[in-house]
Each structure stands twice: as structure tokens, then as C-alpha cells.
Design a binder for these strands. Structure first.
Lengths: 148, 148
DNA sequence: CTGACTGCAAAATCTTTGCAAAGAC
DNA sequence: GTCTTTGCAAAGATTTTGCAGTCAG
């Protein structure tokens, strides 16, 4: 996993390259995602940040704008839940895919080399310039099966 | 591909089992998706249906309600585009995955046996009761690459 | 200083809901 | 007839935008 200091350097250089500014809000949002290995909606991030930094008062619009910036920079990635919006996670870790539980919304990550390779082949076959790929296995997790 | 008459029978029996009613609106929406092998947003469906059946005046709410019903019945499936909503397609064809172009939003379908098998294995490994799975390869399609 | 960023509130999207009238069975 | 469905418009939910003040470089 990328070191926090290295991450900040990387972020700062992206900021600089694009004539943007390095602000406290942006840092705090990035820091939170870096430190929490999980998936969050913008609204969840907003309330979590309010808990941790009650004095900062980061606006929800800033959360959205920062997440977009971070996603465009490739630092965070998102997973979408149809109508119910998106969840974001820190993105500079090994590529992986997701298992999503329809009952409790829990997300489990996995990685499979065969699938990764196949995806490349398929993109090539259709002459697609692949920028990303996602795979979601939807179902009922072990825990929720027990409850039934 | 399932025959249209068989499809209607299937739909009618689902309707009956659930104490629902078979209405013209529901039929027209299903018919449209059956006849058009493509992916549509609710809004697109709405305007297409208005073009084909200018006298029917199907409300957008009915489109949403019917799509939800059809999706729950397993007759249509949806693919989500993050914040920008969902697209629906007729679902009773061979399972397949999607290539999505970020430039023109075109969707190409593909099927790969190896990936299908791997998904089953992974679900099993995590003791997930898989109900569905999706895979999206995101990138720039052949056509849009040329334009650049 | 200058131009980007922020919080706020308003606006824009997209989707769902309440309700009276219409339609299926 | 009874109970579901419909279209409409209003309400909700989520995300984006405009703007004046603030802040980073």
C-alpha cells in the first residue's frame, strides 16, 4: 500500500500540475479515505467528517466536488448502486472487484488474475481502449443467509 | 430468443400469481423492450413510446413503476451509470456483459464462458449466494478513438 | 494581489408518491 | 363492484451550480 506521505506528494503534484490549490478540506477528505478501508457515500463521508472534525464544517458541495476531483485524478474509485447513488473508496490499491450483498449492502473485495486477463483480451477483441473495468457479484452474503 | 407469444404468457402468469393486472401500458413497455435490442433510460423509453403511440399518453411514473416490476420479475435487466441513472434492456436472453464507451455511451454486449465460470467459483469461495453478476469494461470505442 | 476554493442556499436531476379517476377481472 | 393501475402534479432524494466572501500561492 502506498505510504501516506507519498500519497500526499502525489496529490500535491496533481494539484500543482492543474493550477489548483491544496486545501485543508481536500486533505481531510483524502486522509479519511486513505485511513478507512471501506466504501462510503458522499453523505456518509459528510457525517463521518463532521464527527471527526466538528469544527471544520466542510460543506456537502465540497465533498462532491472533491470526490469528483479525486476520482478524475485516479486517487479514489467509485462503485455505483443504481438509483441509490455511488460509494467511494481509496483507489490506489491493487485493482480488485466486488461482491455486494443485497441484504446488508456489505461489500467484499476480491481479485482474480484469470478475470483480469480475460478482460484485456475482450477489450482488445472489440478494439476498445480500456480505461477501467468493474465486476460486481451480487447476492446474499454468508451472514445474511444465516439470518433467513 | 424467447418467442413473443411465450413471453406474453410468461408475463401474464407472473401478473396473475401476484394478483396484479395486465394493462396496455405494461404490455407496450414490454413489447418495446422486446423488439428493440438496445439499452434505454426511463426517459428515453418515455419519448420513444410517445413517438410510436402518440395517443396512448403513458406517464413517466408508469414507466418507472413498470420497469421496476419487470426488473423484479426478471424480464428486464438494468445497467447503472453512476449518478446518471440506469439503462434498461430486455433480460430474457443469454447472459452477457457490457463494454461501455465513455465518449458516446454506446454499449456493446459480450459473453465469455471463462469469466462466467470464474464468477461462480468466486461466489462459492466467499460463500455468497449469487443472484446476479455484472461486468463492465469501460473505455473508448473504436469509433470514438478515430475521432480524436 | 490574483484566481481558485468554500459554504450556503437555490436550482437542477432523477425518481417516487399521493390521489382521484379509469380500467381490469 | 372491487381492487389495482394510471396520469398528473407535487414531493423526495441526490447532486450540481451561482455567488460573495475567504484563502492559498
Amino acid at each position: 500500500m502506498i505510504d501516506y506521505d507519498v500519497l500526499i506528494e502525489k496529490f500535491k503534484s496533481i494539484i500543482k500540475e492543474n493550477g489548483l490549490k491544496y486545501t485543508k478540506q481536500r486533505e481531510l477528505i483524502l486522509k479519511f479515505l486513505y485511513e478507512h478501508d471501506d466504501h462510503f457515500t458522499p453523505e456518509e463521508l459528510n457525517s463521518e467528517l463532521k464527527k471527526i472534525y466538528p469544527d471544520e464544517n466542510i460543506g456537502i458541495a465540497t465533498i462532491y466536488r472533491t470526490l469528483t476531483l479525486l476520482e478524475d485524478s485516479g486517487i479514489v474509485t467509485s462503485i455505483s448502486f443504481g438509483t441509490q447513488g455511488k460509494k467511494y473508496e481509496f483507489g490506489l490499491k491493487k485493482h480488485h472487484d466486488h461482491l455486494v450483498c443485497v441484504k446488508c449492502s456489505k461489500i467484499i473485495e476480491f481479485y482474480d488474475e484469470t478475470i483480469e486477463k480475460k478482460q484485456l483480451e475482450i477489450a482488445k477483441k472489440f478494439e476498445f481502449q480500456m480505461t477501467d473495468h468493474t465486476m460486481k457479484i451480487i447476492g446474499i452474503c454468508k451472514n445474511c443467509q444465516k439470518k433467513q
